[in-house]
Design a protein around this nucleic acid. Structure first.
Lengths: 123, 123
DNA sequence: CGGGATCCGATCTGATACTG
DNA sequence: CAGTATCAGATCGGATCCCG
C-alpha cells in the first residue's frame, strides 16, 4: 500500500542531490544573482550594484560556488585594471527556469500565506 | 527607462514573497516534512522517526512555522496521552508540487553539477 | 577592478533536561 | 506522547583592511 514507485524525493541524507540544490537556492543570494545573469553577462561590480545589500564577500563567495557547480562561467580579461565577466551557463539557465516556477508560486500564493499568518497570530 | 514590465522576480527586499518562500524551503527540514505529509497525515513522533537526524526542537519549530504559514494543519486529540496529527493543507500540497519540480531538476542534473565540481577541483 | 584574509556579532542548530 | 526551555557549538553574514 505504500508507494512502490520511487518516492517524491528522498533527500534524507545530506549528500543527496536534492538537498544539495535546495541548500544552494536557499542561500541568501544565489537566486538573485542567477536571475540577473539569466538576462545577460555582467561584471563583478555591475552585479554588486544591481544586488542591493550584498557585500563583496558574499558576492564573491556566491559566484565562486556557482562557478564550481557549473551554473556560471567566469572569464577574466587582462585589461588594466582587470575585467571579469560572469555568464550564465545552459545548466544555470535551466535552473533559473525551474526556480522561476517557485517564484511564480510564491507570487501567486503570498496573500494566502500572509492571511494564514494573520489568522495564526490572532489565535 | 527602467523596466516598466515586471521583471522575472524582484526579491531585492527581504520582505518580498519570493524571498519569504525561498527562505522557508531553504531551511533544512521544511521540504522533508512537506514531502512526508504530502503522502498523508502523520503524528509528531512518526514524523520524527521518518526524518532521520531531526531533533525534537527543529521538528517542533518547523511544524510551527509551517502551521503559521498555512502549509499544515495541526489537530490535537484529548486521548491519554495526547495525540497530535499533522495534515498537509491544499496550500501545502501546491507548494509540495512546485518543490517537486525542483527536486526533479536536481535529480536530472546532479551528474552535471558533480562533473562541474570535479572539473573545478582539478583546475 | 576584482577580489582574498581576518575579525566579530547575529543567527541557526543540536544536545540535554524538564513538563502536561 | 508531544512538546518547551536553556545552553553551547557551529555556521552565516557583514565590515574592514589589504593586494595584484
Amino acid at each position: 500500500m505504500a508507494d512502490e514507485s520511487l518516492p517524491p524525493w528522498n533527500p534524507y541524507d545530506p549528500d543527496c542531490p536534492t538537498r544539495m540544490m535546495l541548500d544552494r537556492i536557499g542561500d541568501k543570494w544565489t537566486v538573485l544573482v542567477l536571475g540577473l545573469l539569466s538576462a545577460g553577462p555582467l561584471r563583478f561590480n555591475a552585479l554588486r550594484r544591481q544586488v542591493p545589500g550584498i557585500s563583496q564577500k558574499m558576492l564573491s563567495q556566491t559566484l565562486k560556488d556557482m562557478e564550481r557547480d557549473g551554473l556560471v562561467d567566469r572569464s577574466a580579461f587582462a585589461t588594466v585594471p582587470v575585467t571579469v565577466e560572469y555568464t550564465i551557463t545552459p545548466l544555470g539557465q535551466s535552473l533559473a527556469a525551474t526556480v522561476a516556477q517557485l517564484v511564480t508560486w510564491a507570487t501567486r500564493h503570498a496573500d494566502q500565506v500572509l492571511a494564514a499568518r494573520a489568522r495564526y497570530q490572532s489565535r
